[in-house]
Structures are given as structure tokens and as C-alpha cells.
Write a protein that binds this DNA or RNA. Structure first.
Lengths: 256, 256
DNA sequence: AGGTGTGAAACTCTTCACAGCA
DNA sequence: TGCTGTGAAGAGTTTCACACCT
């Protein structure tokens, strides 16, 4: 997911599995909704449905946090909200900077969910001098020259990169040098960062390509069902004339 | 990842593992860059570095596609680009619609990578009548009333939802009813969709929360190194008075 | 009765390490 | 010699199913 080394290589000291961590925000959101409706308790079954996972998984996930439920009853909503928030580190406020205030950066700055839980946009930074001073989402954009100062003055440890791909690596280096240790990267590049820095990436075109893959599969299946050819297009003769199918050779319907 | 059922439940017919599929776009991007620099061949080691994965994983991934390399030499760049594109279904053009043309929707519409490889923005749709006709990224926004017609006329099977959370479920239902079978959801909601529909979600606040979790860990480790307390904040007495630490009880330094 | 917490089984994914081909 | 392709081992994740508590 990131280029930075994995967390807790072999020995997981207080080990919550990464897969579980990735789901905690989901549970938190569902719980927050329940809390707003003043629902006092919830069963693993109900909460799992709201979060879109299965209940055994949810219970196992919670078991890593401790025994927070009551047998025969379920989980106390408020209490769980607190416990998960705490576990995720959302009981404190994280100042973040957004670098690259183009369409996307502006969208992120305006995103409400940002401020909602634990995060605060400390600054918007852009390389275009013409942007400097312009308010976006009520926050004046600052020039890249100020980057290091902003990071240090605000004690920022989380940076969001929404620059063009070409600028991303350099921006990440400056952020890191100034003290940032977690980066959310929207630029379509692989960032290489030193050990200890976490990078998560959000990449639109990758997501679309994954969807396209499955979409193509569905088309293939329909075709198969109606007796048409299945495997993608023809196997034209490329440079390497020695390729063979996935496992040995697929005993599939050959195209014309 | 999605609410829709998993692909290939038990028997993987022509099974490329999901984890591999998710990395193919990454390889494709790295290969495209090499191709633009007219690099003819590349070793698994080099390509892996460019894609930010390790070489054994990359070779294993490629082995699911077939034997496309040459021992002692490496992989033919152009040929691999073609094979991966084909596998991902990018040799055909996928028309997509973007629903919800706010800040984010506009950012997506303007996103270059969209058009670049295999995707074409067929239409922009928004519920605000005031938006109708306005061009965004050169494409006139159409009103939600037209949604079904647009989907059908263009044979759209992939939809992008960039609406507020409250509208997302309903939009997804309309998209699906009109024929969409893959959805990329940017709204912070769990979509519930019928079997056979793929949903992928991109959720800013979830990503940030995951970063916050690790960030907090790092802070904890530093503190531990300097002898301060490790486990998050205090264990206040909540509703359930029976909680216990993760594995038994953490023999950690108790806070004051 | 009802629903959590969890060992154990099943499955998926990653990494190792090396046989075998160019 | 150099690098791919891959069995086999290992790590991580999900699911099952049921003991146990309320």
C-alpha cells in the first residue's frame, strides 16, 4: 500500500491487525450514526450490517480491542464510539496540510468529513503565486515557500498531496524533511519515502481499472453463458512466442 | 471492499487473485513510463522497484497471466503493456458517468488520467437544475432526470458517485436499474447493492483515520523509548465495567 | 434465550529459494 | 551467467461453530 516499510514487521507488540484497523473507521461511522439516533446498544449482527461486513468478522475485530460487549445484549454504542475513537487516535486533533490546491485540493479542503472527526485543515499550500492569499473553503492559500515554516509552526504530522504527479515526490520530501510522518497521496505516483513514514494512496484510475477488469469478466461470463467466446481478445503473436495460459493451458472455448 | 458479493466465491475459474488484479494497474503505469522512454525490456527487479513492490511478488503476479518473460533477460515492455491492458479490459473504451458535480465531481471530470487509458467521461450529471448546461471540463452538465436515458443511450456500465452521502444510495439504485454494474463511490456511505454489482469506495476520512492510528502509534513508541506512558489516554470507567486489555491485560505502564 | 468472545479450520496472500531455461 | 517461473513454507485474514456469560 505504501512504499514505507510495514508496521510491526514480525512481532506485533500490541498488535491490532492491519485489516482490522482499516475497518475501524467504518464501524465508527456506523456507530456515530446510531449514536445520533440515540440508539443505546447494538448487536454485532446489526452493526455489521450497517458497516457492510459480516458479524463474525466484526466480533473478531472488536476482540482485538478488548471485551467491550455484553453477552446476550450487544455493545453500548456511546462506549464503543469512545473506545474506537481512542484507538484510532481521534480523541486528539490532527492538524493536516493540503498541498496542491487545484480542483482536487479545493474539493478536499471543502470536504466536511475532514473537520468532523479529529482532523483540522491547518493550511492550504500551492506552488502558484497567483493562488497565494486566495481563500479556499475559508482558508487562505499559502505559497510553497512557506511549507517548512507552516509544518513546524503547526506541529503538522499528516500531509495530503494533491499536486500533479510530477511534483509529488519532491513535495513529499519537503514535507518529510519538515517533520511530516504520514502522507495521503492523491497524485498518481509511487512515492519513495524513508522508513518510518506512512504513505497511503488514493488513486482514481487504479480503482477504475480494477472495476474495468471485473466488468470485462462479467461480459465474458454472459458470453460464456450464451456459448460465445470467453477469454479476452485473440492471442496475437507478440515478441515472446512462448506464452502459455495461466495454469498450464485454460481448457476454455477458443476464439475463432 | 464492496457490499456486493465477492467475485468468484469459491472456485476461481480463470482465477487471477484479487490482490494481483489490484496491482496490475500499478505495473501498467510503470511500464507505460518505461515505454515512453523507449526502454525495450525490463527485469522483474527493476520493474518492481518502479512499482513499489518486491520482485518475487511481481513475478508471481505475472505468472498468473502466463509466461510473458524471457529467462536471463526480463520482460518485453511493449508486450507486457499490451498483455496487462488486455487483461484489465483496457483495450476497449469504457464510457463512465460522474454523478454529483460539486467540487469533487468537477475535480474528477478534469482529471486527466481519466481519459488517458480506456475510460471516457460520457456524461456529467447533477441534481441542481442551475448546473444544467454549464460546461465542466468541456462537458455540459445534465440534470438527474436524464440519468436513465444517458446510461442507456451510451451503454454505460461504470458509474462514479460523487454526491453527498445522503444521495448516494438512491443514485446507486437508479444507476443500477438503468444498467450500471460497477460503481466507484466517493460518498462516505456503505452502498447496498444487489449481487453482481461491483462497488469500490474511495473514502478520504477513512484513509486519514488509518494514518492517524499509525501516527498515534509512532508517538507512543517514542514515548515508550523515553520511558513515558504508552497506551493511549486513561481508561475511564464506562458503561461496561468489565473490559480487559487485548491479550489478557496489557502489562503496560499505567497512566496517573 | 440471546449474543459475545474465541479457538480452530479454511482460505488468501506474501516471501523464500531454487530449478531450469535463454 | 542471469533472471524468470514456481513449488513450498510462512504470515495474515476470514469464517465457522460453539462454549460461555448475562
Amino acid at each position: 500500500m505504501a512504499t514505507g516499510r510495514n508496521h510491526r514487521p514480525a512481532t506485533r507488540s500490541r498488535g491490532i491487525p492491519e485489516a482490522t484497523v482499516a475497518r475501524l473507521p467504518l464501524y465508527l461511522r456506523a456507530l456515530t450514526a446510531l449514536s445520533e439516533r440515540s440508539v443505546p446498544t447494538v448487536s454485532s449482527e446489526e452493526l455489521a450490517a450497517a458497516a457492510g461486513v459480516n458479524s463474525a468478522k466484526l466480533r473478531k475485530d472488536f476482540s482485538y480491542l478488548g471485551s467491550y460487549g455484553t453477552r446476550g445484549v450487544g455493545y453500548d454504542v456511546e462506549y464503543l464510539v469512545y473506545q474506537i475513537s481512542r484507538e484510532l487516535g481521534l480523541t486528539q486533533d490532527w492538524p493536516v496540510v493540503i498541498v496542491g490546491i487545484g480542483n482536487l485540493g479545493a474539493a478536499l479542503a471543502n470536504y466536511g468529513g475532514f473537520a468532523s472527526r479529529g482532523f483540522r485543515v491547518a493550511a492550504l499550500i500551492d506552488a502558484d503565486p497567483a493562488m497565494a492569499g486566495k481563500p479556499v473553503a475559508g482558508i487562505p492559500v499559502q505559497h510553497t515557500d512557506e511549507l517548512e515554516k507552516i509544518i513546524k509552526d503547526n506541529g503538522v504530522s499528516i500531509g495530503v498531496i494533491a499536486t500533479p504527479a510530477g511534483a509529488a515526490q519532491q513535495v513529499s520530501e519537503r514535507l518529510i524533511a519538515a517533520g511530516v510522518t504520514s502522507i495521503l497521496n492523491f497524485a498518481p505516483t509511487v512515492l519513495s519515502v524513508p522508513e518510518g513514514v506512512d504513505v497511503r494512496k488514493v488513486d482514481l484510475s487504479i480503482e477504475l481499472q480494477i472495476l474495468a477488469f471485473h466488468e470485462q469478466r462479467k461480459a465474458g461470463e454472459e458470453a460464456a453463458a450464451s456459448g460465445a467466446d470467453v477469454t479476452p481478445p485473440p492471442l496475437r503473436g507478440g515478441p515472446a512466442a512462448n506464452r502459455k495460459g495461466p495454469d498450464g493451458d485454460v481448457p476454455a472455448v477458443m476464439p475463432a
